[in-house]
């Protein structure tokens, strides 16, 4: 008797509570359909401020784009800017849902472009950043000066011994970065018959820290890296020539990534905006569409952020004060 009573109480309380919480939820959200893809961040437009949310990618070049855009939006156009750090592919997803309004620097994601820009039309291309990106393999200049022949991939096997680390074992170490970056390195090592082991640092931060540490010791290393990048100012590096990039190789790679045996293409970096934001974003959307600068200008800001340890905001302020002629052209 006592037991059955207990059980019933439990059920009753539970249903009552569930009903209450369910009602509360409905009251809060209304009874109709709730489209998740149209919900924005809870932090935007607090207290009547006009807010723009920018996606910041993990590499510092993208942070420089965002820092300058943010500074100008806040100080010249009176917006509040929120930044969210998101990895590349999820950023496309977030942009499509309107969780962020803009991606300031994209290195080429054909699959996502097809899905969101061409098919669903939730994202609109907003032109180039003005910077051309290039991925490749690099060695430190101090080492290449002593051994100029290292600059050709055909000679890399001769140097494998020097590049051994505990992680790469009996092979030479090819240092790679974040898993989210575009990379064919495993296929390249295999298809070019190189005596190397790809070691993934797991994040760009870890990779940069490792490169800086190697450079301090003047040790040789071989790394996956890309341009434009501020680290070149701190650690001068020379590119290793890989087999030339051809359309044929690209087609083969698109069909089966494990067959790639040529260098990486060069990519004009692109901006993308959320389609609704383009329509209703006013001055901010116009400004972001017009935003365009050169590799050197971007690097100037990147370097202030990353090696002089200025806050992105301070770096952007310094650059904006020095280069009014560049940014005045972006104003709506």
């Amino acid at each position: 008797m006592a037991r059955s009573l207990k059980g019933r109480t439990g059920v009753r309380t539970r249903t009552a509570l569930a009903a209450v919480s369910g009602l509360g939820l409905l009251a809060a959200t209304g009874c109709g359909a709730a489209d998740m893809t149209k919900q924005s961040s809870p932090y935007v437009n607090a207290q009547g401020a006009k807010t723009v949310t920018l996606s910041v990618q993990t590499w510092v070049g993208a942070q420089a784009d965002v820092a300058v855009a943010k500074y100008l939006l806040e100080h010249k156009l009176d917006y509040r800017v929120d930044t969210v750090q998101v990895d590349e592919v999820p950023a496309w997803d977030a942009l499509s849902q309107g969780r962020v309004d803009a991606i300031m620097e994209d290195w080429g994601h054909p699959e996502q472009e097809q899905r969101y820009v061409k098919d669903k039309k939730t994202i609109t291309a907003a032109g180039g950043v003005g910077v051309i990106g290039h991925i490749g393999w690099w060695v430190p200049k101090y080492w290449a000066d002593q051994h100029p022949e290292v600059k050709d991939w055909k000679n890399l096997n001769k140097f494998a011994r020097q590049l051994r680390t505990p992680e790469s074992g009996s092979k030479g170490q090819l240092l790679d970065g974040s898993p989210s970056y575009v990379t064919n390195d495993k296929a390249l090592v295999k298809n070019l018959g190189l005596d190397y082991q790809v070691v993934f640092a797991g994040s760009e931060a870890a990779q940069i820290t490792q490169i800086q540490q190697f450079a301090k010791q003047k040790k040789p290393f071989l790394t996956y890296w890309y341009e434009p990048q501020w680290l070149f100012n701190e650690v001068p590096m020379v590119e290793v020539k890989l087999p030339e990039y051809t359309d044929k190789c690209a087609e083969k790679g698109a069909a089966d990534p494990s067959t790639v045996d040529c260098a990486y293409p060069t990519t004009p970096l692109q901006k993308y905006l959320n389609t609704d934001f383009v329509k209703h974003g006013g001055d901010a959307a116009t400004f972001l569409k017009k935003f365009k600068w050169s590799k050197d200008e971007q690097n100037e800001v990147s370097e202030m952020i990353a090696s002089q340890k200025l806050s992105p905001e301070a770096a952007a302020k310094k650059w904006v004060e020095k280069n009014p002629s560049v940014w005045k052209a972006w104003m709506p």
Partner: peptide
């Protein structure tokens, strides 16, 4: 959608 909306 409603869960997400309620959280926001």
């Amino acid at each position: 959608g409603h869960i997400s909306n309620a959280i926001v």
